[in-house]
């Protein structure tokens, strides 16, 4: 058998060896936490489109994440070291024992929904942009809340809750929200 014939034999043999299922050379499931990627991109935009009081425009711009480890990872990978105004973004993983008030942005993922009331109480009067993913969170005091509409992640916004936190929401962000509570 010549080399050419041998190669032909191998190739044909390999083809017939494919199973009827997901064959060995079939595509691999490239699982990604796509929701986390989308949320991270939104959060960076929120930070750019909201104005903080002058006294908070010094030091690092701290984005805290409660829950959602892939969310934290996404923010680190994509935004750690970038700037909001003149402030460098610093991403922190936050738990209940941390001081929330150091955060410019605090994201509470839906797996931490049970802590939301406590978190809201603890950031009262602080200039912390509280972002959640929990039904009815605006009524509880969150400034921005992610909602799912026809499988897509969108966001709702409470201007009055923002004002309570001494945050100014620009018209651009208002116009992009699914709905705005004044």
């Amino acid at each position: 058998m010549t080399l050419k014939n041998f190669l032909a034999f191998c190739a044909v043999f390999a083809l017939f060896s494919f199973t009827h299922s997901g064959d060995d050379e079939g595509p691999r499931f490239d699982e990604k936490d796509t929701s986390a990627i989308i949320k991270a991109s939104y959060i960076y935009n929120f930070a750019k489109l909201i104005d903080w009081p002058d006294e908070d425009k010094k030091g690092n711009f701290i984005i805290g994440v409660m829950g959602g480890s892939s969310m934290y990872q996404q923010l680190i990978t994509k935004y750690n070291g970038k700037t909001i105004g003149s402030q460098h973004i610093e991403i922190r993983k936050i738990s209940n024992s941390h001081n929330f008030s150091v955060c410019h942005v605090l994201f509470v993922d839906n797996d931490y929904s049970s802590s939301l009331n406590e978190v809201i109480d603890r950031v009262q009067g602080e200039s912390t942009l509280l972002i959640s993913h929990n039904k009815g969170a605006l009524a509880m005091g969150a400034v921005i809340n992610f909602v799912v509409v026809e499988d897509n992640l969108k966001f709702e916004l409470s201007v009055s809750n923002a004002e309570k936190q001494d945050l100014f929401v620009g018209s651009t962000l208002k116009s992009l929200a699914l709905h705005v509570e004044n």
Partner: peptide, 14 residues
């Protein structure tokens, strides 16, 4: 989704 640019604005993300 993975290719969303870090600086992408909300309409692009949507």
């Amino acid at each position: 989704i993975e290719q969303i640019d870090a600086e992408a604005q909300i309409p692009t993300i949507v």
